[in-house]
Design a protein around this nucleic acid. Structure first.
Lengths: 228, 228
DNA sequence: AGAATTACTCTACGCTCCGTATCGTATTTG
DNA sequence: CAAATACGATACGGAGCGTAGAGTAATTCT
């Protein structure tokens, strides 16, 4: 529905045209209001009218930017995801720990908690929304994993080949486990969880090589690099 | 919302009272219609009125059974989950593979695809719905993992202690990875994914014991049981 | 400076669906 | 047969959707 309405991404560089420019104040107010509503009353309470009222903005102003409340939520969540950058650690172990805590932090925020799953679910049927989620939420998160693996390659901890072959799986496991724990089961992300998951991932990365032909062809690292 | 309306679970044994009993035909028709709508048009199109019309039933008849469309979807999905039983395999490796394919099959069904995430998201704010999801969807799935680990204990592949300590984590990793791949990323569950995830889990289970004190205290299985 | 262009607020509209209530009818138990 | 309960049908007020129109404000091109 509403496929042909020409909305622009808020974050994207806006073409400087002729007439009155979009109000960046309204941009901020709308997304802030969206996050506030999501955090306070959840996804079910997120309405365009409510957001507009809370942002002190006309309903049409919201519709000029976002095609639906799902679109609205994507943008609000995407800002959170974009803000979640992880500092490179001293090794794969630390990198993974950092990535886990960073993601847990993002998913744990009230606005993200209320919106993430609902938005992803909504994207299942709307190709336009799907594309937005893919580009603004999924890809940035995947990139965090890919960057971590690249650093591991540079340190000689794993081969480039293995890193490329395992990026998607590692992303599924890390993000999936976190989402499942935080958003689906609503359980706590404690130190034990982080530590055990980190070690499991490290072990799996080193041992389960892509080819079962050669049983123990450790590619570049002749000894396990971690042992705190 | 609607906390005090006395609805019964459809699957639950219904108290045989005085008056006219609930029509089991209507029960089936409603859930079938729910799945059909979800599969064809997705979560956004799921309305109580639509389901009632499709099931050939009055709207009040639906509301007598379910408090909301989310409730409706939970019941529809719960039937799918309940139907997903895995046959015990010959070893941990096969058990894990079976569990993965079984879960992937459930999540991959159109009705579940459209409903699972949305329902879980909706449950985040509604305690009643949350309880239903916990009992009818989350716990049954966790039980599959727990059963698999119990069989591994009986076979002497791992210790009971380790199995208990790792049930939740394993559940988060397996279910999370699958949900993330199938529902969030909408990627394919191919043989490579299943095989690599299976091997990674096996390796992690055997090696990353709870205590890093003794580097190689393989509990009961002196050699890796898998090698296809 | 003036014209053109675009965004803003405000109001209003038809629409769909929600969740409840009411009414008369059907089915089962005591 | 009487009580109790479920059923189908219909109607209702309310909320929110998504669009449209009219008037005002801001910015750029000529």
């Amino acid at each position: 529905m509403s496929l042909l309405t020409p909305r622009a991404d808020v974050g994207a560089p806006r073409r400087r045209g002729r007439g009155r420019p979009r109000s960046t104040v309204a941009d901020e107010a709308i997304l802030d209001a969206t996050r506030a509503v999501l955090a306070e009353d959840g996804w079910a309470a997120l309405t365009v009218e409510g957001v507009a009222a809370r942002a002190g903005v006309a309903k049409t102003t919201v519709y000029r930017r976002f095609a639906s409340r799902a679109d609205l939520a994507v943008a609000a969540v995407a800002q959170l995801v974009a803000a979640a950058r992880t500092a490179p650690g001293s090794g794969a172990s630390e990198d993974i720990r950092n990535a886990i805590t960073a993601c847990a932090d993002v998913y744990g925020r009230p606005a993200a908690r209320a919106a993430y799953l609902a938005v992803v679910a909504e994207a299942g049927r709307d190709p336009v929304l799907r594309e937005a989620v893919e580009r603004q939420v999924i890809q940035p998160a995947r990139q965090i994993v890919a960057d971590g693996l690249s650093r591991a390659v540079e340190r000689g901890e794993i081969t480039r080949e293995l890193a490329d072959a395992r990026t998607d799986l590692l992303y599924d496991v890390l993000a999936g486990a976190l989402i499942h724990r935080v958003l689906v089961r609503e359980a706590e992300v404690d130190d034990d969880f982080i530590e055990t998951l980190t070690r499991a991932v490290l072990v799996a990365l080193n041992v389960s090589g892509p080819e079962p032909t050669r049983p123990d062809a450790a590619p570049a690292s002749p000894e396990p690099p971690q042992r705190k």
